[in-house]
Amino acid sequence: MSELKKWFELPIGCTNIEPGSSLNNITAGWRVFTPVIDEKKCTKCYLCWAFCPENAIKIADDGFPKTDYRYCKGCGICSNECPAKAITMIRQEV
């Protein structure tokens, strides 16, 4: 309990003054299947990036989409929607 803030340490009026602080919530633990992108097949259409509900696919400097596995929940939309069938869902090793 010690890390929880005291009442006078909270921002006023039920606000959160740290925009985007959900990044502190790592959601990798939700994942059962993990998407793996085969860059040989990827055509860089970026549909996976556009559809990702987790905002967990980033376009890297080389132009390929990369999954941020800290936030990927393994929903599988990227794999299902990839026109080039470049994304495979692999069962996560525990």
Partner: peptide, 26 residues
């Protein structure tokens, strides 16, 4: 012309608690 032209800026951060595959996040 394609989704590639969507702005790259993101204002909706990862780490939210919507279900896997949630359309509301999209």
């Amino acid at each position: 012309s394609t989704v590639k032209d969507l702005p790259r800026e993101e204002y909706f951060a990862s780490g939210h608690r919507l279900c896997q595959g949630c359309p509301e996040a999209i």
